[in-house]
Simulated assay, not measured.
Amino acid sequence: MDTDLFLVIGSAVLVLALPALIGAFSESRPPRAAAILVLIGGALVALAVTQSPSGYGFDDVPQALTRVIGRFF
C-alpha cells in the first residue's frame, strides 16, 4: 500500500478517537475504545512516516490528502 494512504487513514482514525475520548471522560468510564483508536491511528501514521523515502512534514499532509482523494475521483 501507499504511504500517503496510511497517513490519511491514520489521521482520520486519530480524529475519530477524540469524540470517543471525550465521551469516555464525560461519562466517567475508562477510555478503552479511544485508546485502541489512538494506537491504531498512531501506528499507521508512524508507519507512513518511517516508510516514506522523504518523510512527511506538516505542510505535506494536505497534499497527501488531496493525492489520496484524487485517486478515487
Rank of each mutant, 00 (worst) to 15 (best):
M1H: 14
Y56E: 05
A17K: 05
T66E: 11
I22W: 13
G23F: 11
F25G: 09
L5E: 13
P31M: 04
G70D: 10
F72A: 13
V13R: 03
R67M: 03
A12Q: 09
A48W: 01
L7G: 01
L18I: 15
A20H: 08
P30R: 10
G42R: 02
G42N: 09
A24Y: 08
A17P: 02
R32A: 12
Y56M: 03
S26P: 02
A34R: 04
R32N: 13
T66M: 13
D60E: 12
L21V: 05
L39S: 14
A35G: 11
V61H: 00
S26I: 12
F6R: 06
G57A: 08
G41C: 07
A46V: 08
A12V: 14
S54L: 15
V15M: 15
L16M: 15
L37N: 00
S54V: 14
A35N: 07
V61E: 03
S26Y: 10
Y56T: 02
D59E: 13
F72G: 08
L14I: 13
L44M: 11
D60P: 03
F6E: 03
G10S: 04
L14M: 12
S28W: 13
I36V: 15
R32S: 12
L47I: 10
A64D: 04
A20N: 10
E27P: 07
E27L: 15
G41I: 01
G10R: 04
L5K: 11
I40C: 06
S52A: 14
P30M: 07
F73H: 13
L39K: 05
V61L: 08
R71T: 09
L37C: 08
G41W: 04
A12T: 13
G70W: 03
D2L: 05
A48E: 01
V45L: 03
I40E: 02
V68P: 00
I69H: 06
R67N: 05
G23I: 06
A20K: 11
T3C: 08
I22E: 07
L39R: 09
S11T: 14
G70S: 14
D4A: 01
A20E: 10
L5F: 12
S11E: 10
P31V: 05
A17R: 04
A34C: 04
A48N: 01
V45R: 00
P19E: 06
M1Y: 09
D2S: 15
I36D: 05
D2R: 15
R29L: 12
L37W: 01
V38S: 03
I69P: 02
T50M: 15
V8Y: 00
R32L: 12
A12I: 14
I36T: 06
L18H: 13
F6Q: 07
P31W: 07
L5Q: 14
L7Y: 03
I36C: 09
P53K: 10
A48M: 06
G42A: 02
T66C: 07
M1F: 11
L21A: 09
G41D: 05
S11M: 13
F6A: 04
V38I: 10
I36N: 03
F73Q: 11
P53L: 10
P30C: 04
T3H: 12
G42D: 04
L65T: 04
F58I: 14
L44K: 00
I9Q: 08
